[in-house]
Design a binder for these strands. Sequence first.
DNA 1: TATGAATGAGATTTCATTCAT
DNA 2: TATGAATGAAATCTCATTCAT
Lengths: 216, 216, 216, 216
Amino acid sequence: MPDSPPPATPSRKLDAEKTRQNILAVARQEFAEHGLSGARVDAIAARISTTKRMIYYYFGSKEGLYLAVLEQVYGGIRGLEMTLDLDRLTPIEALHQMVDFTFDYHEENPDFVRLVSVENIHHGAHLKQSEKLRNLNSSVIVSLATILERGKAAGQFHRDIDAVDLHMMISALCFYRVSNRHTFGTLFARDMGAPAVRDRHKGMIRDAIAGFVAGN
Amino acid sequence: MPDSPPPATPSRKLDAEKTRQNILAVARQEFAEHGLSGARVDAIAARISTTKRMIYYYFGSKEGLYLAVLEQVYGGIRGLEMTLDLDRLTPIEALHQMVDFTFDYHEENPDFVRLVSVENIHHGAHLKQSEKLRNLNSSVIVSLATILERGKAAGQFHRDIDAVDLHMMISALCFYRVSNRHTFGTLFARDMGAPAVRDRHKGMIRDAIAGFVAGN
Amino acid sequence: MPDSPPPATPSRKLDAEKTRQNILAVARQEFAEHGLSGARVDAIAARISTTKRMIYYYFGSKEGLYLAVLEQVYGGIRGLEMTLDLDRLTPIEALHQMVDFTFDYHEENPDFVRLVSVENIHHGAHLKQSEKLRNLNSSVIVSLATILERGKAAGQFHRDIDAVDLHMMISALCFYRVSNRHTFGTLFARDMGAPAVRDRHKGMIRDAIAGFVAGN
Amino acid sequence: MPDSPPPATPSRKLDAEKTRQNILAVARQEFAEHGLSGARVDAIAARISTTKRMIYYYFGSKEGLYLAVLEQVYGGIRGLEMTLDLDRLTPIEALHQMVDFTFDYHEENPDFVRLVSVENIHHGAHLKQSEKLRNLNSSVIVSLATILERGKAAGQFHRDIDAVDLHMMISALCFYRVSNRHTFGTLFARDMGAPAVRDRHKGMIRDAIAGFVAGN
DNA sequence: TATGAATGAGATTTCATTCAT
DNA sequence: TATGAATGAAATCTCATTCAT
């Protein structure tokens, strides 16, 4: 009785948070791998250290868990975007940096790409319904707007383009390579994961975007 | 009474084919709407005049039906691509035409876009497994290669680019707008379906591709 | 018009009988392989030259077909039994001959063995219901009775045994080897199909039966 | 109220095991009665207090359940065989005991006989696939080998016979009476279940085996 | 006589979720 | 807070049989 009483509330809370994160990490993989409908609560349960009941305890339902995954995953990229320090670079360098970041993030996070695809199959219903996600102010638009402004002021960019549209173009080029890797790769006999292909594509996209913004 | 008597013996066969096509059309919508896992055979059955049993009679399984849909849908775009007559146009006009076709096709066939997304969530497993689909050699690559060659010969294109890579860029820009419509539209408060937006994007993509291929 | 008009009714009938036999042969294999419940009408249909409809046309139902198979199969062994000519042999030789015939028939007709097993799983319901089968007078009992009588008269057999019981013993020993081949063979690591095993068993059974009937 | 309060925590686990056993017992009857293909999961469910869902919860599939039944049933006879204490008997008494045990077990457990027949219709596929069943080393072979050895040493047995072959003969004679009860009984107008018949057969088999092993 | 299409009924199996302790 | 057992509802799929011509 005198020795090692169970530590009080704080550790409990830590354990709880750890459990939550454990579930979330496994769920992310499952949802990314199989989609919302295709993922199995049982499969997630089988891979976590606690029991299936905890999923419902912490997240209420399969959809609740999916939403939490979505929030975590979008939070991740938004957080990283904010760490970009582009003001010290020239407009062209900053734009290259932006493209490189976007390219690398998609390349390195195929789960993110897949989850966004999944969410679009569901018409973005969960994203629309999540206050947290709707309020995610995307610093990337501000960053791009600043770059465009500075480039124009410097006489280097002549294209009249909206920052959101530019972001869409960059995203499209970086996203598709990963999202459509399997169909495109199969139909055109390309190994979309090969390093040489990746590097070539990165250069192409950088050039295309820079050339486009520069205008003529 | 005198007009349109039921056709004689062949009617049976026509009915069978009609039934098949009927199922296929409904299935396409369901799979596009809910994905492979999310689609319900019952829901498809409920929308056709025959019974659920017929689905299995004609397609063997839910996956067999999905595969048939995929084959039909890919066959559709490949068929249209072959009708493009670009040889009479200048290289620049031909490239514009190519972009316009690709843009319009994605814009007008969101089901195609969604089905391709769905297939990628499944790692392109069905596409890989279908001999019919693997043998679909895309005339679009030949067309693009010809355009690039002619443009270079005419001194109008300076970019050294592979036709497949160029096709990927065009596709990416046209696909993403539709595939990621919901998440992108929500996060950046854009109505991706608005005619004005559509026209602006079409111009942007045309310019970006033309500029890129021209090189500098 | 003058040349080769389709031959009239007789050929029709021959074709019909041929079709019937064709179906029957395939059905026998299917029922022997999978049992009554396990056999698939579709599988049988897929293997016959005519269509599935013919099965129902000729046999009425799956059960009707099964019954026809059963009748054919029992008719086969009963017919052969009647060709045995044992009267010219000594009682002991005749008994040996009887055992050899029974042994060989089971060994060479595993389908018969399997069908009888299947029918027993169904409590012999079809056999009981078939007038044709109930009326199959088994000459084997008469043959055995005669052998026993002659052997006793000759002072060679001392055992007081009923011909039906003797037939059961012979059948049991010959049937089990084939019917339980898979479980027995697996549990006791014996290859029940090996020629050496077969020959040894045949000798054993002959000896056991002869010894038993001789009495002591 | 005062008596038999529900047991505390372990009750859950006991209930689970009870549920499992309950399903197993009913399934045994169903599979014995209708075979693997003919048995209906619904029918099994209808006879137990819990729902059909539980069958899948505990056994995974219809085949899984069938396998569990098979393992239980084979375990049953093997377990009993091990309780035979034959060493204190004379070789001849021990052999009689062995035959009697085998005879009685088959007579009293027609479900076992039917299940073995069913499994043979399926080519022993499940037995072969079950590690548990493949590892059931049958003490009966050792017992028989010992009896044979002792009998020979005592100059009472002169037959050179393999214990496995001897086991096959005993099993065949005991198994067939039960397995082929319906067809044999019908074809030869014998009530195979009648006590008088049973006793006569038991004596016959005992004599036949003893006489065979004794040799002459 | 022959046939391809069709089908109702019911089979097995799956799944997210909740209960009892 | 935690857990193993349980479950209703619905999903996919199968099968012997019949229809329309």
